[in-house]
């Protein structure tokens, strides 16, 4: 900012980075905000809620696994379009997606969340936590809804959300990375772009810190998902083995 070296070039690079990641995000976000806006009045009726609640546990688990798997395909496409991701070795691409794809889904969920009604877009309409009762994971569902609500309260723009999603996905502290330094460089670059966009959008000073705090909440949600899946698999090994999407099983070790 003092004009000594090449801040203009850096700013231009950061702007470019922001544009690229925002474009990748918008191309792969599954639903546009306008589409979600148009569907925002569509809430499940009481008899529809009861119909979900009366599904056998394994049927509801399978339905949610299918929905998560659909969303994951979009996250994989997002990752592929992040500048530098495909230059990482294949091991590290897999490691980052295995560890980060569900975290990105939870981040993206705030776009599909209605804070006023405490509902999320699921299976064609907006659903409250009670819709997921048959899963037998009320505590996890409640935490996921709380997380979405707290993300919503930050009122992130699409470019901020895009950069934060990329930052989460490019976490350099994941176990089993082979070229940690390469991932670190990409994550640092993404963090700079995130800082840049927050400044440009004149956001409050503490927002980056608040976002960094969300990272540990995301990790906790994902490890709890893994625990719930293990518990479910212990009771229904055949259902997981034969009826769950193969991609879901690959990612979550089911």
């Amino acid at each position: 900012s003092n004009g000594d070296t090449s801040p203009t070039v850096s700013m231009a690079e950061l702007d470019h980075q922001v544009q690229l990641i925002s474009k990748s995000h918008l191309e792969t976000c599954q639903y546009l905000r306008e589409e979600l806006q148009q569907m925002s009045w569509q809430n499940f009726l009481q008899d529809e809620v009861e119909s979900y609640q009366s599904k056998p546990r394994e049927v509801m688990w399978q339905l949610c696994a299918v929905k998560i798997t659909e969303a994951i395909q979009y996250v994989v496409e997002f990752a592929k379009r992040i500048d530098g991701f495909m230059d990482l070795c294949q091991n590290d691409q897999i490691v980052l997606l295995k560890a980060g794809s569900l975290e990105v889904i939870f981040v993206r969920m705030c776009r599909m969340f209605d804070s006023q009604n405490n509902t999320v877009f699921f299976d064609g309409k907006f659903a409250g936590p009670d819709v997921f009762r048959a899963l037998g994971c009320d505590d996890l569902i409640s935490s996921v809804f709380d997380f979405a609500k707290s993300m919503c309260s930050l009122h992130l723009s699409e470019d901020e959300l895009a950069l934060f999603s990329a930052f989460v996905l490019l976490s350099a502290d994941r176990s089993w990375l082979q070229e940690k330094l390469q991932v670190e460089k990409l994550q640092q670059k993404t963090q700079l772009a995130l800082q840049h966009v927050l400044q440009k959008n004149q956001r409050e000073d503490g927002l980056l810190h608040k976002l960094r705090c969300k990272v540990s909440a995301l990790r906790s949600l994902c490890s709890r998902h893994t625990e719930k899946l293990s518990a479910f698999r212990a009771v229904y090994p055949d259902i997981v083995g034969t009826h769950f999407p193969p991609l879901y099983k690959e990612l979550f070790g089911a």
Binding site: T69, Q73, E77, Q93, I94, P245, P246, L247
Partner: peptide, 20 residues
């Protein structure tokens, strides 16, 4: 690679009409 066959396919395809 065999363990993450679908993920490999998704990463390699330019678009991903993989049958899941």
């Amino acid at each position: 690679k065999e363990k993450h066959k679908i993920l490999h396919q998704l990463l390699q395809n330019s678009t991903s009409p993989v049958d899941l």
